[in-house]
Design a protein around this nucleic acid. Structure first.
Lengths: 192, 192, 192, 192
DNA sequence: AATGAATGAGGGTTCATTCAT
DNA sequence: GATGAATGAACCCTCATTCAT
């Protein structure tokens, strides 16, 4: 199923997509750096889009593993879970840049080919967070949410926004806030 | 300084950049729709990048006007100011499409030419928010921040993240949270 | 409207299409031989298909001129007209190879882009021939045709077939029949 | 000599070549539909060209059988033989799609590898028709031909032209002439 | 006898930019 | 100020063929 060549391509593609984005990474470039013929890329991946999708899938599975650990940890209360969830999510994503690329593709371009993939990811994440919120409600530590889904959407939106902001930092910001600090604002707000 | 031709180009470019993004908008396209020769674009704007920058600058000035009104409103306390700031910011940005394009370009592509532009915007925004935070501290309604800048960065990061998340909504989410709700989480957090 | 570059491209393209057919003539090749940049081809002709169409149109107009002369010659009776029509048609087409290319494109490929062009040509030719047949009927030299259109179609089909056969000759046949001889068969048949 | 795999390849190739032509049929496609590895095609057939040649040979043998029946029918005079020959030839060729592909390849492309194949077919056909013409001369029903070969070439050219014209019909012509009508023109001409 | 991985030249097309007028 | 012709590098993708297994 997976060959050395295929893996090599995937690895190189991952690096380049993560660095330059979808548009600015060319198949030529991937081929040259991977020391493979361009045709080989197309033997293993039907198109540039498919290759990109595969790259993202790979990285997402890693993220899921990490987050699942936290969600299933029975020693944590909802507040701690949420905080760790946020922190780990960001730290992992730090090493999985390509995931973010999907964000853009989905939004700014008309790349329908990403949609299915995003749906998977988003739904999975919503499940995890819902469980935490439910736990928080039972424990009485979270605000009561009349419609739990609306609350979730809002929260998820903020969390996803963080991704972008985080990667935006390096061009201009020196001392970037730690993820803990961010988590704190989300959990307790800015007011006393 | 500003001619009819120049304005026409700017207007058309704005529409197209907003709709298709930087990469997917070609100078050919702009020229054709503006009914100008391609050479004319280059007479007025040294490069595609310069044209894009000019387009965004135009839009940003509108956003600045709107936000300044709020920041200078002496009838509002910091909490209300912050809330209105967030809400108005989002509502305005909703119609400032090219600004968002910047966000993307800055993040995903290696467009160094965007940097200068973003710096302007970000610094301006930081100033405004700092004033609000200071006011909040004086009023005693905000948490004490040891290092006010770090707090600001964190907060700004979250606010900027909202932009993207907001525009991401339509493909999959039906009932999207109002900006008020988002502002509430940022101001008060999710816990009691 | 027509520039030197455009003409050069058209001329080279005509030669190559005529020699190697549509598929086997590449835009690279045309550009190289015309000593123009590939991009220039696309500046003047939106696509390979458009270029090809233009080439064919050019040659067809030449053919039309030649044939019109005969059809309007009042000194010829229908039989002579028909004979000359056939002979001139073939001689002209000999120097307008690309026309034939359309025949193939129309048939073997799904090149819808040729259809409109062919329709023009075919209808025009049908008009001319109908006039000759009518004249022949009035003169009493042609067989009576109950349905003149059916007769026309049959005849046109045979004439068009000649084109192909003619160009087929060179690979294997040495002494090829003159067009006069062909015309004779069509007019008088093979039997006494 | 012939294996199941070989046959399968041949059958699939025949369908695809007939449908899409030589150029537009890829070895990949053939391999996939035949459920064989691409390497297998090359084990059995040295090249794409060889495979194509083999496909056509197969079909031609069918055509030959049909036409031979007529030529050897001793109850027919030359005129009737000629007419039936034409009609049957066309009816059979209607289902011998790949043969027609040859016609095109020979004409429009520079496929020298087709030459040998075409020579076989053409020579065979010439033999058959020569016999008919000789018979016609002996019976006194055909015009005297000084050089019988030239007459033959002319006639064959017309017959071959029919092939193409026939298949050309569908795009624009509704009521297409029957083969009988065509044969009549060839045998008796258009004049009284 | 059969496979599937790998190749690389070539295909058509796009596009930001330059430049003579 | 304004034009449009011309450029050439880059892009994504196809495909006949080779070869080790």
């Amino acid at each position: 199923m997976s060959s050395k060549t295929r893996d090599k391509i995937l690895t190189v593609a991952s690096k380049l997509f993560g660095r330059y984005g979808f548009n600015k990474t060319s198949m030529d470039e991937i081929a040259k750096i991977a020391r493979k013929a361009k045709g080989s890329l197309y033997y293993h991946f039907h198109s540039k889009e498919v290759l990109f999708t595969e790259v993202v899938k790979r990285e997402m599975s890693h993220l899921k593993v990490e987050l699942t650990k936290i969600c299933q940890d029975e020693n944590l209360d909802a507040r701690e879970k949420l905080k760790q969830y946020i922190v780990v999510r960001m730290n992992t994503i730090e090493n999985a840049v390509n995931y973010n690329e999907t964000v853009r593709a989905d939004f700014f371009e008309h790349f329908d080919f990403i949609d299915e993939l995003r749906n998977d990811i988003d739904n999975w994440e919503k499940e995890q967070l819902r469980a935490i919120v439910v736990q928080g409600n039972e424990e009485g530590t979270f605000k009561e949410l009349k419609d739990i889904d609306v609350g979730l959407e809002t929260f998820i939106m903020l969390i996803k926004g963080m991704e972008l902001s985080y990667f935006l930092k390096d061009s201009r910001t020196q001392n970037y806030p730690s993820f803990e600090r961010v988590a704190d604002i989300l959990i307790y707000g800015v007011t006393r």
